[in-house]
Design a protein around this nucleic acid. Structure first.
Length: 541
RNA sequence: GCCCCUGUAGCUCAGCCGGACAGAGCAGCUGCCUUCUAAGCAGUUGGUCGCAGGUUCGAAUCCUGCCGGGGGCGCCA
């Protein structure tokens, strides 16, 4: 949908053209000013162009305004030149009412949907926690992020396949097996093993042979079932579960090593094989085959990514790793360049560490042992919606700390209530509408221009930004922007709810009709945003 | 030593592809329930945007250097 902003940008471009200057809309900004005194929209075009033209910004702004006065954009009511040379647009509120009509007509399916993805096939790998134990809170944090990103990308026209890479082979499975057998034999688990209580529970149920690999694989499968159950609770469902063992057994890893060797990118050191990744920007060369003849993790990972790009034909691959996997980024990208895939198609997002506070105690996620908190514990405390919203509220680039005691409280420390309450109030208004038998006329027969209360206008302005926020959040891989929009929007709705009665003897019926459509539009928007984050929209609270 | 992330109000965080007096929530203080849910609303206190230079008409935002925090530099995965 072509927005009012695009329309203004085009008009400004035309105005510059009339002054003999080629000015693509991408070269200047048309934005909604932070302060409403500065108009509905404002632009810096005069300041940007002034330098090249050798003219004073305000003088140039005068000329542009002259053109726009003769050739006004739709809804234009007044122009103003302010500050160092901003041009502020004051518009007839009709533009907001017209956009409300669009929101209502588009509905949940179409509103804030975009085609910027243009059908690009994207593979999104995330979570991929090793099946050596249950998911902990950190796993769940990034899993929610990945799932929300998948929803966002789909909303924006990408064809997304989500995937969980199951590390079901190698040394850690051996260690898991050793730990399991030790427990079954009543021994303590050694330092390097898995010491969690869940291993004790598994040991009670294991009836297989005293073979570490068999025991390890059995335990891994059990753990995987537990992981899937936790993810189900979060409403996260992967399209593909990809087994690391399967790619090794298929011979694909060997093929990749051979392929690299054929390109002269492998050197051998006795039985070891080393990939010359420094030729592709890595900080050191990397082992692919160990002294004992086993493949390294990296060798399997390269084969896995080759599989994604070449065998399955994904145009883009996005991996979401924890920041502790930073070390493998350069190696994997080097391999993609070496194999001709091109590292630009591989996007690796690193989730910074998350630490939990519980009162005075600082609890840090530790993969190996001790103080990690199972995701299920948090889910039991908070429920899936609050858990998801919490983890989706901050940037992936920032190491966050969360106080579990605080978020358990039903307060703005846990904004899910604030947002869900806004939705519940919308639903409540509609229930009352039905109880009173109010039949809403078609929108074309309703006088939406009655919506001119400051609360209503503020709500309408925020409502219409969602499509831009969705696109931005998708392109920036930043679901937290949706969470922020939800908080802001919910706040504006609560203010409206408080100051503007929709259904009341004190409100004229025409205004009730208009406000009911405003509520309907708000409900569309908030439901779209909630669904993108996977947070439940409650009818009542 | 090198690489990645980060330093904004007492706390948790937005803003960071340059713009108009730096934002939100929580915490603190003060008000508001006879009408659609007070899990709400309104007001108010609180900031050298880590420090120092530089670029610019304009810097929290870009560049450089310091200082602090987190993570990584395995023939682990």
């Amino acid at each position: 949908m072509s927005s009012v902003r695009d329309m203004i940008a085009a008009a400004l471009s035309a105005a510059m053209g009339s002054l003999g200057v080629e000015m693509e809309p991408s070269l200047f900004i048309v934005e909604r000013p932070a302060r409403i005194e500065h108009g509905e929209f404002s632009t810096n075009v005069a300041m940007v162009a002034a330098k090249e033209l050798g003219e004073k910004p305000r003088v140039l702004a005068e000329k542009i305004c002259g053109y726009l006065t003769d050739n006004p954009v739709r809804y234009q009511s007044r122009l103003e030149i302010a500050g160092p040379g901003f041009i502020n647009f004051f518009l007839d509120y009709g533009y907001l009412h017209d956009e409300l009509v669009q929101v209502v007509e588009q509905g949940e399916v179409s509103f804030a949907r975009s085609d910027i993805g243009a059908g690009e096939r994207v593979q999104l790998e995330f979570c991929s926690a090793n099946p050596t134990g249950p998911l902990h809170v950190g796993n769940g944090w990034w899993a929610s992020y990945g799932d929300a990103l998948a929803r966002l990308l789909r909303r924006c026209g990408y064809k997304v396949s989500t995937e969980y890479y199951v590390n079901d082979t190698g040394g850690q499975i051996r260690r898991l097996g050793e730990s399991l057998l030790a427990r079954r034999a009543g021994r303590e688990v050694e330092e390097e093993g898995y010491q969690g209580d869940y291993v004790k529970e598994l040991a009670k149920r294991y009836t297989g042979p005293d073979d570490v690999m068999i025991a390890g694989k059995w335990a891994a499968e059990e753990n995987l079932a537990t992981i899937k159950a936790s993810l189900d609770k979060l409403d996260i469902h992967f399209d593909v579960w990809f087994s690391q063992a399967s790619i090794e057994e298929s011979g694909a890893v060997q093929e990749i090593v051979d392929l690299l060797a054929s390109k002269g990118l492998i050197v051998e050191e006795e039985s070891k094989k080393i990939f010359l990744s420094t030729r592709f920007g890595d900080s050191r060369d990397r082992y692919l085959v160990k002294a004992g003849g086993d493949f390294t993790y990296l060798a399997g990972d390269i084969a896995y990514h080759y599989n994604k790009f070449v065998l399955r034909g994904f145009q883009r691959v996005i991996d979401i790793f924890g920041a502790d996997h930073h070390g493998q980024v350069a190696s994997l990208k080097a391999a993609m360049d070496a194999l001709g895939v091109g590292s630009a198609r591989l996007e690796i997002l690193l989730g910074q560490m998350v630490s939990l506070l519980s009162g005075e105690d600082r609890l840090k996620f530790s993969k190996r042992k001790g103080n990690l908190i199972p995701l299920d514990d948090l889910l039991d405390e908070l429920g899936p919606s609050a858990t998801r919203l919490l983890s989706l509220s901050t940037s992936i680039d920032r190491a966050t700390s969360v106080d579990i005691e605080k978020v358990k409280a039903e307060s703005m420390d846990n904004p899910v209530y604030y947002i869900q309450y806004a939705h519940a109030r919308m639903a409540s208004i509609e229930r009352v509408r039905d109880q009173r038998g109010i039949v809403l006329p078609e929108i074309s027969k309703v006088n939406l221009s009655l919506l001119d209360h400051p609360r209503e206008l503020a709500l309408l302005r925020e409502l219409r930004t969602l499509p831009e926020v969705v696109e931005d959040a998708a392109l920036e891989r930043a679901p937290y922007k949706i969470a922020n929009w939800l908080k802001d929007f919910s706040g504006l709705f609560h203010s409206f709810y408080h100051d503007c009665y929709v259904i009341s003897d004190a409100v004229a019926i025409d205004l009730t009709y208009a406000r009911l459509y405003l509520v309907a539009g708000c409900k569309v928007a908030i439901r779209v945003a909630l669904s993108l984050l996977g947070v439940e929209a409650l009818e009542q609270m």
